[in-house]
């Protein structure tokens, strides 16, 4: 009797746990399915449609008229992207600018993270706050700050003129240089943080052993520190590179007419030309380009999330 009671109680308990697990899992799962995954399917669908003057401004892809179900697939948008050199140039330009900015971030960010990881525990907390704080304040405002600095009448040109470095103001705003500087500035904290988290876990005894065995500090760095911080470098680079490829605000505010970046082109197709199908196909091609970096980042992130303690 007692045993039977026990087993029903246990079954009830297990049943309750399973039910709770389903709820805990189900709510965010359904939300993300509806508001994250389904929208991508719609972008894909509409990229095969064609633009019309209507509300919404595209032809239906699936239609059900007179009991016949028709699928109208139009590859025209993709052919259009291929045929117009503007789009290919914009993709290439975005990748180039994002690569250079990521490299700049890495070159500035790695030594910063290294110095942070070597500081004393209490200094580390303060440094961490100092690096994170800018990434939490307004992105738009921080990009805007550079407009006042880089302009022809801006602070930097005034300084250069006063120092006598140049006789006339240098054109810095509205150039690719300004865009790269802006991206490096805005995304630097995202490069520093993952590298720092990685370096701080590095076993100092390895470095001491290498040093005791007569390894020079630079060799130690190349042979031990750098390879062991690879995961941090990859994560940081992906956190900078992927959003930078699709960046809109920075090329719009700091770039010039010759700055071709795909995020800006997509925005213009959507808001100025109201061509939703072309904007959608631009987004799909951009996603395809970014798929490998995104998968790399996701694998790193999943490992971080699952790792215990």
């Amino acid at each position: 009797m007692a045993r039977k009671l026990m087993s029903t109680a246990l079954k009830g308990r297990i049943g309750a746990v399973v039910f709770h697990r389903r709820v805990v899992f189900g709510i965010p799962f359904l939300w993300l399915l509806l508001f994250f995954l389904l929208p991508f399917a719609l972008v894909l669908k509409i990229s095969f449609s064609s633009a019309v003057m209507a509300i919404p401004p595209y032809e239906p892809v699936f239609s059900f008229v007179d009991n016949t179900f028709t699928v109208m697939v139009n590859f025209g948008n993709y052919l259009f992207l291929l045929s117009d050199s503007l789009y290919i140039a914009a993709y290439w330009g975005s990748v180039k600018i994002a690569l250079v900015s990521t490299l700049v971030c890495l070159l500035i960010g790695y030594p910063m993270a290294y110095a942070m990881a070597r500081a004393s525990a209490s200094t580390q907390m303060v440094l961490l706050l100092l690096v994170m704080l800018p990434s939490w304040t307004s992105f738009l405002i921080r990009v805007y700050a550079w407009m006042g600095i880089l302009g022809n009448q801006g602070l930097l040109n005034n300084l250069l003129l006063w120092l006598g470095v140049t006789d006339e103001p240098l054109k810095m705003l509205n150039t690719n240089f300004a865009v790269i500087l802006g991206i490096a500035y805005a995304y630097l904290p995202f490069m520093v943080l993952p590298i720092y988290t990685n370096l701080v876990k590095l076993d100092v005894r390895l470095l001491e052993a290498a040093s005791d065995l007569g390894c020079r500090s630079l060799t130690t760095f190349w042979a031990i520190t750098l390879p062991l911080s690879k995961a941090g470098i990859i994560a940081g680079s992906m956190l900078v590179f992927i959003p930078a490829v699709g960046e809109f605000v920075i090329p719009e505010l700091l770039g010039g007419p010759d700055t071709l970046m795909i995020g800006k082109v997509l925005w213009e197709e959507f808001f100025n030309n109201r061509d939703w199908p072309v904007a959608s196909s631009l987004a799909i091609v951009m996603l395809a380009l970014l798929l490998i970096p995104i998968v790399l980042f996701h694998r790193f992130q999943a490992r971080e999330l699952e790792k215990n303690g």
Binding site: F36, L42, V43, V245, Q301
Partner: peptide, 18 residues
């Protein structure tokens, strides 16, 4: 984890279409 790196123009466009 995808929204952490997804370019904003893509997220914005896809949600609007939804």
């Amino acid at each position: 984890t995808a929204p952490l790196v997804m370019p904003e123009v893509i997220t914005g466009l896809s949600l609007l279409l939804l």
